[in-house]
Design a protein around this nucleic acid. Structure first.
Length: 461
DNA sequence: GGAACTCGCCAC
DNA sequence: AAACGTGGCGAGTTCC
């Protein structure tokens, strides 16, 4: 089969499998959704009353002709930055002063805290709970999964979008995921590919250091970067403080670097993560606790005593990252970019071709992002087929780029785990010989009849 | 009254 | 020299 035929076949089989996922649907607790919506409405009204009783709000009212809409960022920007002549660092894409959460908080106006809170609650109520209620049929929602909309040949989801349900914000996560249940007597099982995009980037670039990190389970890229970024001599991932540094390195340096970000944004992100100022000078007692001291005191002892010197330090590490740690990856980036400039398209390992006007970062990210999803899609097709062949009661009910959600019949747990592991770790690399690093999954599970909010890590026995 | 836009914010 | 990739969607707003 030629590459394009193979790519087509994946989409064809993929959309048929996803149609079954759509038809299965996911069970929701409609009664809960309606009660929670009312509860949120009452909370929002209370916060609005409080806000409207402040001097800050009355001044706002007096400055405009018509009625104030406190939910309008345009009106708010006009008041804050026009009338009151305040300023923020952050600008919107069209160059206006921003009224996003960070900007509002940076103004240090206590009355605005209520506005931020109102926004969060409205988002939960109107974007999520409201959509679930609108879209449900007999207690099930049937989100669409599209394979024809994303330029990188990833998927998208709508009506409702089941690929952006809150996860990181604990309150939003609890409220939204509490709406989802397995079928009666079943469990929800979530299967995630481990570091999929990093693995796929190794397949494209063949960077030997990257490959070593992925094949050798005792090495850990994020720990190494944390050690280097924060100058820790004895790094120990099991210590709470050190693990925060690792999370910081992972989410504010390693991933952004691979997406095409640069040292300045990374330095700011790292400081936010460890609670150090990016404006004022550092004091010994600043920042998170680490090894019986603070991160500020530790860095000061290493002659990094301000944001400015930390930023220079991060710049050097960025240089080292691409020149010394991952030079082969860096060479691939240039080859890939030159190749696109020459031909006007990029080819994926999965047979897809992306053409059109693209920036450098788009050109470098598209094949990795798309191909990662194709590994998920191929696995989903196989798993769905197995569920049929073996007449299992479990079914796939959601898919989020590198993960699947399964409505699991409890007696089939062991069977499903072994099917998933076999497909992902053995059949997948056999099908695509360009997969040169191990493919693995992490799993999380909820107990019988528990909601999606209750999921816990599943330890393989 | 709908299309198209901006803004903000949720996911990977 | 420049500087974060892919989406969906609600609300507000403007334009036709």
């Amino acid at each position: 089969m030629n590459p394009r035929e193979e790519a087509y076949k994946l989409l064809h089989e993929g959309i048929l499998a996803l149609a079954e996922v759509e038809r299965s649907g996911i069970r929701i607790d409609l009664d809960y959704v309606q009660r929670m919506k009312l509860h949120l409405t009452r909370k929002i009204e209370k916060l609005e009353r409080e806000f409207k009783s402040t001097k800050f709000y009355r001044r706002w009212e007096h400055t405009v002709k018509g009625k104030v809409n406190i939910n309008s960022s345009v009106q708010l920007a006009h008041y804050l930055y026009g009338t009151l002549k305040l300023k923020t660092e952050r600008l919107t894409t069209s160059g206006q002063y921003s009224t996003d959460e960070d900007s509002l908080l940076s103004l240090n106006i206590p009355e605005l805290n209520n506005l931020v809170k109102i926004r969060k609650l409205r988002k939960i109520r109107d974007t999520y709970l409201e959509a679930f209620e609108q879209e449900q049929v007999n207690g099930y929602i049937h989100p669409f999964f599209n394979l024809h909309l994303v330029t990188t040949y990833r998927s998208s989801s709508d009506s409702p979008n089941l690929q952006n349900i809150p996860k990181r914000d604990e309150e939003a996560m609890q409220i939204c995921r509490r709406a989802f249940y397995p079928r009666p007597g079943h469990q929800l099982l979530e299967v995630d590919f481990k570091g999929m995009e990093v693995s796929i980037s190794a397949c494209y670039t063949h960077d030997p250091t990257m490959i070593r990190y992925l094949r050798n389970t005792s090495s850990d890229m994020h720990s190494d970067m944390a050690r280097q970024l924060f100058l820790i001599d004895q790094f120990d991932r099991t210590k709470v403080g050190h693990n925060i540094l690792r999370q910081a390195a992972k989410n504010s340096f390693v991933f952004p670097q691979f997406y095409g970000d640069y040292y300045r944004n990374c330095a700011v992100g790292l400081c936010n993560w460890v609670q150090l100022s990016t404006r004022n000078s550092w004091k010994k007692e600043d920042g998170i606790k680490i090894d019986n001291t603070t991160i500020a005191e530790h860095l000061i002892s290493k002659k990094i005593n301000s944001y400015q010197s930390f930023e220079e330090h991060v710049k050097k590490i960025e240089d080292d990252f691409w020149k010394n740690r991952f030079p082969v990856y860096a060479q691939w980036k240039e080859r890939q970019w030159n190749n696109y400039k020459k031909h006007g398209y990029i080819d994926f390992l999965t047979g897809f071709r992306c053409s059109g006007v693209m920036s450098k970062n788009e050109v470098l990210n598209a094949p990795i992002q798309g191909t990662a999803f194709h590994c998920l899609l191929w696995s989903l097709i196989q798993l769905n087929r197995k569920f049929h062949e073996e007449c299992l009661d479990s079914r796939i009910i959601n898919q989020i780029h590198d993960s699947m959600l399964i409505d699991l019949c409890p007696t089939e747990l062991k069977k499903v785990i072994s099917l998933v592991n076999h497909i992902v770790s053995e059949e997948l690399p056999k099908t695509w010989d360009w997969i040169i690093v191990p493919m693995q999954v992490d799993m999380e599970i909820c107990q019988v009849d528990e909601s999606w909010a209750e999921k816990k890590e599943l330890k393989i026995v």
